[in-house]
Design a protein around this nucleic acid. Structure first.
Lengths: 366, 366
DNA sequence: CTGAAAGCGCTTACAG
DNA sequence: CTGAAAGCGCTTACAG
């Protein structure tokens, strides 16, 4: 697909691409001028600018980013704005690991990363870190827009400064983001419903359990439940499978757990449980004590506790959001935009992985 | 983690790494000599060689592959040895696409790819293409070792010439391959068994169907069936689920299909079908006519026909081998080895993806 | 066996 | 507004 400049003598064996030197020769100017045009640095007459751009187009010039990276003296700064991970195994550690992996791969390109991590239960810290970020004046940003209003304010700031940004984990539509990288929560709920529907008999009940204190996850939870319910509606199964939603206010609510135990004991029709978050291990832990019998359980995220219960057959399916990959891809979206100067997919929905005891060990984090 | 040479004046804002110039200064020789040592080009006295290597180690020197790529005048040649794809949608097109994607990403590194594609039903063409490959004298090779004996002969040739090679799709253990990238067939069968077991009632029968003319796939098929059966053995389910193997000699065998139709009609206990290959669409097509009712079907590979039947609910699960990713990763294994000069994972087992109607549209080929 | 110089395709001050 | 030159960190002949 590459066009080769046939008139050019091939001085070495390498594939020969168009260089700024070739453009300079055709335009009858120096390479400095080409560079100014290409980077919009101004100080070029309109006439030469147009002439140069025409030739660039005609020759289908693609910059050699390797040479460019080698010659560039300043680092490119990319800010990463995420919730603080509460532990090394926590979910929010994973997008960070993905960014770090991508960073390692592109070490030689002179990219500087700075993490701005806020406390997820503290809006103030969100605002404070957002200010720090803007102060740092990055050339690009990766953002998990957890708080709607505050996120909108942050990105207004970035837009003013023409700093491109990528959203991960959750999306705020139509905010001129370069890209959104994350899962379709509705569809992941829809898929979970299919899995449970396949595994449990007709005329049974399914519990949908939400852990309500997950402020950072609220939109996800809602959309997952909605997707889950839609499956049964769309397939005319509402008669056949009864859905019951429960919301648990406090994770450590013994009272609730006692009630749940009772409920499961009394209502033998309950054959499936869908937990809309990574907190599914709490339900698995309960059933480990009371006995799981024929109940099938679906939940989210490959955190260690969930993996343990998956391997013990106390969780049947986990939905993986590929959080490392989200960080990794977000980095490369900015890399492609800022360094490769190529266009970036605006909507990048992460695959919805179905994880069982049998394929968990073959899963790669990136 | 990077060590910074603190004595060096930092002349620009970029992260400063150790350069061959730094080593040259410390060793009291010129950079040419460092280069000779680093690349083992000889023509260096043992004494200086040792001194240089010591300093390289001490400073933890990592070559700047960007500068290296820019300066290198010769292309690196990578040979890709795969079965010919019978159509653009065929399975074997996919590893090729993966290689091409990786190739595109690393365009600027001056890597040349040449495909050597053999007719899968013709051993002679395998041998012939293998000869061509060796004649081309590549610096590295990606190989799908379909025929055991002939593959061993090819890689003996490569080893003699110290050409590193990566296996994809299927493995021949202990052949000094740089890496194997492919799926664990046994485990994919094991997983398929779990899926069917979850979806169908107790005291039923499952058919295992092999399409025997798939010479290129023989080992895979056997291992998949073995894994499938092992699941039931390991979980003490052999009493509960009856397994029946069928082998179809000729894909277009109407006689067989008629018999299968009869069998399904007569034996109402048959509730699951496991097809050990991508030919599962043939079974789905049959059931489309005769009625699938409560039978669950699992098969392999995201080829268009299978996807069509998956979406029509005539196939319940497809196991994906990520063939594009296999090609992609094989390329990068060689890239890391030859250009990044970093070590490569010897065993790279592809994740075993479970694909349903509900997540198929979110699957990315790479 | 070793060093000095030119070059890869860009970017970056600097001079005019 | 434009050009000439130095430099990024390597590789590659070439000279001695």
């Amino acid at each position: 697909m590459q066009r080769i400049n046939k008139k050019e003598k091939i001085i070495n064996e390498k594939n020969h691409h168009i260089r700024i030197k070739d453009i300079a020769e055709q335009a009858g100017v120096s390479i400095g001028t080409i560079d100014r045009v290409l980077h919009g640095r101004g100080e070029v007459s309109e006439e030469t600018r147009e002439k140069v751009l025409l030739i660039v187009k005609k020759l289908n010039y693609k910059p050699n980013i390797i040479a460019s990276a080698l010659a560039t003296r300043e680092n490119i700064r990319i800010a990463v704005f995420l919730p603080k991970a509460i532990s090394d195994e926590a979910y929010w550690k994973k997008p960070r690991l993905g960014v770090e992996k991508a960073m390692e791969e592109t070490r030689q390109y002179g990219i500087e990363i700075k993490f701005f991590q806020f406390d997820i239960f503290d809006k103030k810290s969100f605002i404070q870190e957002a200010e720090e970020l803007v102060k740092w004046n990055p050339q690009g940003a990766i953002i998990a827009p957890i708080y709607y209003r505050e996120s909108v304010s942050l990105i207004a700031n970035l837009q003013e400064r023409s700093i491109p940004y990528v959203f991960i984990d959750s999306n705020i539509p139509n905010q001129s983001q370069l890209s959104y990288i994350g899962q379709d929560s509705f569809q992941s709920g829809y898929l979970s419903a299919r899995l449970l529907d396949l595994c449990i008999p007709e005329r049974t009940t399914i519990l949908i359990i939400n852990f309500a204190q997950e402020v950072d996850n609220l939109n996800h939870l809602r959309q997952r439940e909605e997707g889950f319910r839609s499956y049964f509606k769309n397939n005319d199964l509402t008669e056949q499978k009864k859905l019951v939603s429960l919301t648990l206010e406090d994770v450590e609510d013994d009272h609730f757990m006692a009630n749940l135990t009772l409920l499961l004991k009394e209502d033998q029709a309950i054959r499936g449980i869908f937990v809309t978050s990574s907190k599914v291990y709490r339900i698995a832990r309960l059933l480990e004590k009371t006995g799981k019998s024929k109940i099938r359980i679906v939940g989210y995220d490959l955190i260690p506790k969930n993996i343990t219960y998956l391997k013990k057959d106390l969780i049947d399916f986990l939905i993986n959001q590929r959080p490392e990959e989200q960080g990794y891809k977000a980095f490369y979206a900015l890399f492609d935009h800022l360094i490769n100067r190529k266009s970036v997919e605006g909507m990048n929905l992460t695959p919805i992985d179905i994880i069982t005891k049998e394929n968990i060990d073959y899963q790669k984090s990136i």
